[in-house]
Design a protein around this nucleic acid. Structure first.
Lengths: 224, 224
DNA sequence: GGATGGTGACTGTCCGGTCAGTCATTATAG
DNA sequence: CTATAATGACTGACCGGACAGTCACCATCC
């Protein structure tokens, strides 16, 4: 989708540009990001941006899609299909948290898509963002049911929906100022958010999911 | 906080202005809302807005705080303190959903506060938005534990955190384009979102919360 | 007639996008 | 191997539109 020119420039330059773009768009939002400032941060002239991309919008969409790709690699990359549902879920939460801490800009980009005025982008991005995760979660849960690891009366679609909901809220609490303040209010954390507190919350969220999915009383509930 | 003049004009005029402001800010976001357009929609001259408020920012904060107040009345209004935790939670979810459907603009306003560039507002609003709900949920859960209605080993703060998380995601699915698309993707809904589908999702979310909070039946019978 | 509220043209600023011109690199000619 | 030509990436001053906030003037009511 970007112009050919983008492919012809030095990779280092291109990477710098895309990283700075992701940061700026994430921090300021789409509308408030100034192409001139972006150019200057990327060490490039404003005109050049328009040699690489047709418009601000095209650049934005490209950065978002690239971020999605990176996130996916980071989160689903080291997954072993042999693991059971619970192990895979835990892996996703932990990898997700690590990635979000290392590259918060991409999650911020995602969160912005749900805000006002971003509907045109939601129309273009939401499906490709959510489809993969939805399919993945549903497939793992269905397998889990088949293997007797997950309660048979579970509504898989609904369960996937709220597991992902917890994931979103949790990750948002790591990067968005509002959700950080909210987390602190709920957990009554006074100082800054420690990695320890976050890990604790992560662990207990996973335990929560576990306790909901696990089949009721009877035997054959071994795991881990 | 607004100027005195605001209090002196006809209530009908004031209400119209505040409603239109809420709608516009909700739909377009803070930055993209044009004071001239707002004035024209409210049937008022642009200059008048500056007779009522010092600035766009003051108007915005006032509208947000007013929305918060309205939401609270709608959601917590008809609550009977004699009800048990579960009944109160269900009431909140159902009242919340009804209010959000009737006046989506206020939830949109809330969602926008977590997006990029809104940090200054998050700093001013987040705490007063979250504090009330957090305290309420924690108090009800604590009561529930004391009454033996809620499992005793529950971490109240964490439970409140994710109950509210589910609430947010659910309500967001009613108003934000992105979260609507996401809900449809997860629940595999093809047509438009029917009230029926939403009610079903709401009921099962409440059931989920119920099943997590309820004490494990057989073991550790403290009473009964 | 003084005070208070209402008005919209005006101003300064900001920003997306353009484009005429520059210059480093590469291709071609001698 | 040098000289000349061609290429296309690069640049930033500039343009047009948008928009927050101002203010000089008007309307209305006591």
């Amino acid at each position: 989708m970007p112009k050919q020119t983008l492919q012809k420039i030095k990779p280092a330059k291109r990477d710098k540009l895309l990283v700075e773009a992701a940061r700026l768009f994430a921090q300021r939002g789409y509308a408030a990001t100034d192409m001139a400032e972006l150019a200057s941060r990327a060490g490039v002239a404003k005109g050049s941006l328009y040699n690489y991309f047709e418009s601000k919008e095209e650049l934005y969409l490209y950065v978002c899609r690239q971020g999605l790709e990176l996130s996916r690699q980071a989160v689903y990359g080291g997954l072993d299909p042999a693991w059971d549902v619970y192990r895979q879920l835990e892996h996703i939460f932990r990898q997700g948290a690590a990635f979000v801490r290392a590259r918060p800009e991409y999650l911020l980009l995602y969160l912005n898509v749900s805000s006002a005025g971003m509907e045109p982008f939601a129309e273009k991005l939401s499906r490709q963002v959510e489809k993969h995760t939805a399919d993945f979660l549903k497939a793992r849960l269905t397998e889990g049911v088949a293997q007797g690891l997950v309660r048979a009366d579970l509504n898989v679609n609904q369960a996937a929906f709220w597991i992902n909901g917890l994931y979103i809220i949790f990750m948002a609490s790591l990067v968005s100022r509002h959700f950080q303040l909210r987390l602190r209010e709920y957990l009554e954390i006074k100082g800054p958010l420690s990695k320890r507190a976050i890990d604790g919350q992560l662990t207990s969220t996973i335990a929560l999911i576990h306790s909901v999915l696990r089949p009721a009383a009877p035997a054959r509930t071994r795991r881990r």
